[in-house]
Amino acid sequence: MPYRKRHIKSKIHKIRLQKSIFKMPIFWILNLVVVIVLSVLYFLIFFSGFQVENIIISGNEKIPSKNIEKLAYANINKKIIGIGKWNLMSKSIFLVNSQKLQQEILSRFPVAEAVAVEKKLPQTISLKITEKKPVAIFCSSAGSEQASAKCFFIDKNGVIFEELQSLAQRQDMPIITQTLNSNDIFTGESVVDRNVISAISKIEKNLKDNFQIDIKEALVSNPLRLDIKTNENWQIYFDLNSDTNLQIIKLNSLLKNEISQTSRASLQYIDLRFKDRAYYK
Results as ranks from 00 to 15, higher is better:
S148V: 12
I236F: 07
A116E: 07
L167Q: 06
S144I: 06
R225M: 13
L95M: 13
L180Q: 14
K9R: 15
S242V: 00
Y279K: 03
Y269N: 11
Q171P: 00
E232A: 12
V111Y: 05
S92A: 03
V40S: 11
S242G: 02
S65Y: 04
F109S: 03
L251D: 01
I197M: 15
L71D: 09
N31E: 06
L106S: 08
D193N: 14
K132C: 06
W28E: 07
N54G: 00
T179P: 00
V196E: 09
I203H: 05
I259W: 07
R225L: 09
Q212A: 12
L41R: 02
N210A: 07
H7A: 11
K14T: 10
C139Q: 00
T177F: 00
N181V: 09
K5W: 08
I200Y: 00
T177P: 00
D155H: 04
D239Y: 02
F94S: 01
M1F: 03
N181R: 09
N231R: 11
N257I: 05
R6L: 13
F211D: 04
K202S: 11
S20P: 05
M1P: 07
K256N: 13
E104C: 01
I213Y: 02
F109R: 05
E104R: 12
I15Q: 15
Q212V: 02
N77D: 15
V115A: 10
K156P: 00
I175A: 02
V159T: 12
L88H: 10
K133A: 08
L95R: 06
I76V: 15
V52W: 08
D243L: 01
P134S: 14
M89D: 09
P25C: 06
P2H: 10
I12S: 09
E217Y: 01
R108L: 06
S20F: 09
N181F: 10
K150V: 03
F153H: 12
L167C: 06
D227W: 01
P2N: 08
E189W: 04
V191T: 08
L219N: 11
I26K: 12
Q235I: 02
E162V: 00
Q235C: 01
S20H: 15
E162T: 05
P2Y: 08
K5A: 11
K132W: 03
I55V: 15
L251N: 04
L32E: 04
K119R: 15
S260A: 04
Q165M: 07
D271I: 10
P25M: 04
A112P: 01
K205V: 08
S126M: 02
N54H: 15
L167I: 08
C139L: 06
I270N: 03
C139K: 11
L95I: 05
I228R: 09
V33E: 04
F153R: 02
K133N: 13
A114D: 10
Y3N: 10
N60P: 08
S148D: 07
N31V: 10
I83V: 15
A199T: 12
I160L: 03
I63K: 04
N231Q: 11
S263N: 08
Q247F: 06
I57N: 09
V34M: 14
F186S: 06
Q99M: 02
S266M: 03
F109N: 05
A116V: 06
F186R: 10
R170I: 09
I176L: 13
L246M: 13
H7G: 04
K85I: 07
G84E: 07
T179A: 10
G49S: 13
